[in-house]
Amino acid sequence: MKDDDLARNYHRSGSRSRSSRIRKARRKGLWIFFATMVVVVAAVGAGLSLLADSESASVVAARTAAADAGRKPIERTAALAPLNLPADDAPHGSAMEWWYYNGILDAAAGQRYAFHIAVFVANGLVKHTVMHAALIDLQTGKRYASQTRTGGIPIASSASGFDFRQDGWQVAASGPAHLLRVAFEGASLALDLKDAQPPVAHRAADSATPGLLDFGSSGISYYYSRPRIAAQGEISVGGKTQAVSGAVWFDHQWGEFDVLTLGWNWFALHLADGSDLMLYQLFDMDGRKVMTAGTVSNAKGSAPLKAGEVELIPGGTWTSPKTGITYVVEWGVKTPAGLLNVKPYFPDGEFDSSRTTANIYWEGPVKVTGSSGGEGFLELSGYDRVKAKPAVRN
């Protein structure tokens, strides 16, 4: 399906201060990771500067001529190699890279569970690999969370995929087939996944370069998703093992971009009509909105949302009793198909990763009502660093 056809169909259907204990813990935790990120940021800045300084006169002339003629200017992303799957499933050695999964799983007896798993690799003078995982019992709200980090990249050799193995955890993929094995204190998760649909390559609405997003002075990112991977496996909670199944969202993002200068509100939603909605709102460290964008996709294809087609309206908040950070956990999402109301299953989705990545974020399952039903995941990052309430100031 063509972009405009899908967009038409979609039109029709359719982020204070904390206690001294927390401050001390964060200062103490992972100074090595901070050093790495400083080097990464410096490298990104130098790389972007070099990129700008090395533009040939002919390219500049071509851009000027195009602008003078009223034609679309040449994209920065066009100078980079295009997205190449399955080869790009594998690690790239870029400044920052992550592989991420979330899902809501059903057990045969009706119980439901939600999880997210992420692998982060930061490359600088020192390389670090970090793994985060959380499992939520949707019957009780009990949350199991764990994290681990190591120097280097603990990955088995793979020509076009990845196989991370660390502290008994395993996150692996080869093309559309994925495997997740994670253990917590009192719980575990083991899933085998297989995707029957092609991946979704995200892009800006006015861009001709699929799989690449330009964040301006913060850099450029490769980004693709597999929004609905069929998953089957087992969850063990409190000594009881249950067979589970469900649809899992997978994201892979990498590039020479600076994660320290931006925060984000990110949505990954499975809607009742079979479509999938990825939305992100970036904000700077003064709380000012930088951009709002996203992708709508279904079994027939995908299309980026155009400027003005989506608006995020902050709603209810939750303040962590542990860190004092206030997060916007309820949202109104205006889309061409109507207004979606997004609320968390449980307000406490805080993941304190001070000791592995020196940041704190919110991540959890959400329910969708309004113009369409559905469910999915919400991620709120940068709230621990922002100087004003994020995503509100213009």
Rank of each mutant, 00 (worst) to 15 (best):
57 A>N: 00
201 A>C: 01
300 K>C: 07
189 L>W: 07
153 I>H: 04
318 W>T: 03
143 R>H: 05
107 A>D: 00
308 G>F: 05
216 G>M: 03
106 D>M: 09
37 M>N: 10
267 F>V: 04
168 G>C: 06
355 R>M: 12
145 A>R: 14
385 R>L: 15
245 S>L: 07
178 H>Y: 14
60 V>G: 01
62 A>E: 07
382 G>A: 11
200 V>W: 06
204 A>F: 02
282 L>H: 13
46 A>V: 13
185 E>D: 15
179 L>N: 11
212 L>G: 03
355 R>K: 10
188 S>K: 00
270 H>A: 15
385 R>T: 07
160 S>K: 12
274 G>R: 11
282 L>F: 15
97 E>V: 03
34 F>Y: 13
228 R>S: 14
276 D>S: 15
60 V>R: 13
54 S>M: 12
242 Q>V: 07
220 I>K: 08
255 G>I: 05
133 A>I: 04
213 L>E: 04
148 T>F: 08
23 R>Y: 11
185 E>W: 03
118 A>V: 06
347 P>S: 01
229 I>D: 03
180 L>Y: 02
79 A>D: 08
21 R>W: 04
233 G>N: 09
211 G>L: 09
217 S>P: 15
32 I>N: 09
153 I>Y: 01
218 S>C: 06
38 V>G: 00
216 G>L: 01
312 L>S: 04
375 E>D: 15
233 G>Y: 10
110 G>Y: 03
